[in-house]
Amino acid sequence: MVFDYYPGCTLKTEARELDEAGRRSAAALGIELQELDAWQCCGAVYPLGRDEIAPRLSSVRALAAARDHRRDLLTLCSACHHVIKRVNHDIRTDEKIRDTANSYMEGEQAYQGETKVVHYLEMLRDTLGFDELKNRIKKPLTGMKIGAYYGCLLLRPGKVMSFDNPENPSIMESFITALGAEPVIYPYRNECCGGYITVKEKDQAARTASRVIDSALEHGADCLITACPLCLYNIDVNGTSSKDLPVYYITQLLAQALDV
């Protein structure tokens, strides 16, 4: 199976490990990731204003390129996934946004939302299958108690993201189980860590992140996993708690369990 792959800006820099471990693991699993040529930054924040066109264009370009390649578009970073999936939804449901965005596009065929946007975890669940993933694991993470940190971007709004049950998700827990570890379900796994405001409102971000850490610790997690570089940074750097709680990218533990 071949996917068009959209890494996003942070995966080329600060979150290189999220990207590289993801590529190594995909290769080991027989999934081919074709990085899009000349992809542009998704903007990191989904443009909530209905009148904002420019911030949607980089997503539309990536989506149209994947359409032209007749491939699904795979993302890994939660923020990129959120932005591109929602822009795709806009193109499908909002005629005005569709027409205006297309007027900025090169190419003969207008983009109408044909591309399917797939998160790396969705690929593992729906294309490979978690049972199959379990079979491929070389070094199961036996004994590790892992808290899945979903955050907000993967799950909400549930009707648009269609990623998992937004209030009671299970995809990361299934992933953790497939890796041979024990998932720890804690109530703040789908509450926001406050990463967005980390630059200007450090105190607030620290408090929000600490709530997540405390909740995971209380329920017995040894570590957290996330797909979001901003969450990882905020929880790891800004979050304060009595006890240290390491945070890893999903692909880091995947690569470790696959021994790649």
């Binding site: 990191a44 901003l230 990882l232």
Partner: peptide, 12 residues
């Protein structure tokens, strides 16, 4: 360690 994403978000 601040990720690029944080800065882009802040500007946005």
């Amino acid at each position: 360690r601040i990720p690029q994403q944080a800065l882009t978000s802040a500007f946005r």
